[in-house]
Design a protein around this nucleic acid. Structure first.
Lengths: 203, 203
DNA sequence: GTCTATAACGAGATAGAC
DNA sequence: GTCTATCTCGTTATAGAC
């Protein structure tokens, strides 16, 4: 016996549809997943899905709206850490954690693809990306101050580049292969002050 | 006055259609680009396009079939270079050259997306990627032998990772931003023997 | 070899009963 | 709130004239 207009129940159903849609979008892609399939997976009709979501695009966006609080929590957990370089590695590890999962890889690809067509989606993921970039940039700045990171690096540019490298680990995902070792070596090699890589500036 | 059954003319027309299709696929994506649009762009009819290509998927593949000879030539140009590390950087620079072009970035995404659905496409790009990976691995091996690259690295794994880094430059593409500086610093920091990054193995 | 015309199909979205 | 039924549109691909 469904209570009438129960807002909690509505939110629950929305969530359920979004989760099921996310699964299908990741596995098959956006265009190749019909709203009818999503409805079937959740045990309802297409019309019902359109009751909870304005259109198919907003259904896709819902999957990524869940990422923002997670990103904020991740940064909050590490921004005050004693060693900034270790904190950067921990954040990147967390971001790359799902890289081995092929469906996560598929979802990133769909995201990159749809972001060009849907400005609202771009705004949603842009907010999440900004939180991560600013958090990483703060850690990088602190690492520079403490002498652990090359002062010639621009904190924000470097943060963006590290994010791109994490994304690349998703695109290069192979089952049973964890990107952590390569990721750590890459990041440390990039951030380190240029000892050994170049000669002393003024002999 | 079209000559009848002129094979050169056929190849030319195929090429023309493939080029126009590549432009549209990169800008709009595979699913959102209809064969009718491609036909219009090339000044002909959908039926004519289907005369030159078996189906839409083979039209997409044609765009990437052109990459294999280019990859082979690129590797051949650098595999005998005197300094392997410089040669690696030159190859990666060439691969990242198009990263600033946003349509090239879009095409990479469409490729990743379609490769999961089209085994023949996967084979086509797999051949190109293998040529590049093996060429890079050969240069890495030589760099290890000559002491310029950390001997703890596996040549083939490292080559694959460098390819992923190149992909990252595409993901980080912004107008007016050249990826070369980040790319060089990343690659050199990764390949270098571990001087300065870690302590002596046995004090 | 290239066209016009259209077949065959499935998509997103809506109407209106209940 | 959720359903059945359907509308409308665009897609790939083909048939057949020329």
């Amino acid at each position: 016996m469904p209570r009438r207009a129960d807002p909690e129940r509505i939110a629950q159903k929305r969530e359920q549809i979004a989760v099921e849609a996310g699964r299908l979008f990741a596995a098959q892609g956006y265009d190749r997943t019909s709203v009818a399939e999503v409805a079937k997976a959740v045990g309802t009709s297409p019309a019902s899905v359109f009751y909870y979501f304005e259109d198919k695009a907003s259904l896709f966006r819902a999957v990524f709206e869940r990422d923002l609080p997670a990103a904020e929590a991740l940064i909050a957990r590490h921004v005050e850490a004693p060693d900034p370089v270790t904190a950067i590695l921990d954040v990147l590890d967390a971001l790359a954690r799902d890289a081995a999962d092929p469906s996560a890889s598929g979802m990133l690809i769909e995201l990159l693809r749809r972001a060009g067509d849907d400005p609202e989606l771009l705004a949603v993921v842009g907010r999440t990306a900004n939180v991560l970039r600013e958090g990483l940039a703060a850690l990088i700045s602190r690492g520079i101050t403490e002498g652990a990171i090359d002062p010639d690096l621009d904190a924000t540019e470097t943060a963006a580049w590290l994010q791109a490298i994490v994304d690349a680990t998703y695109l290069n995902a192979r089952p049973g292969h964890s990107p952590h070792i390569e990721l750590h070596r890459t990041v440390l090699g990039y951030l380190n002050p240029p000892q050994g890589r170049q000669e002393e500036p003024n002999g």
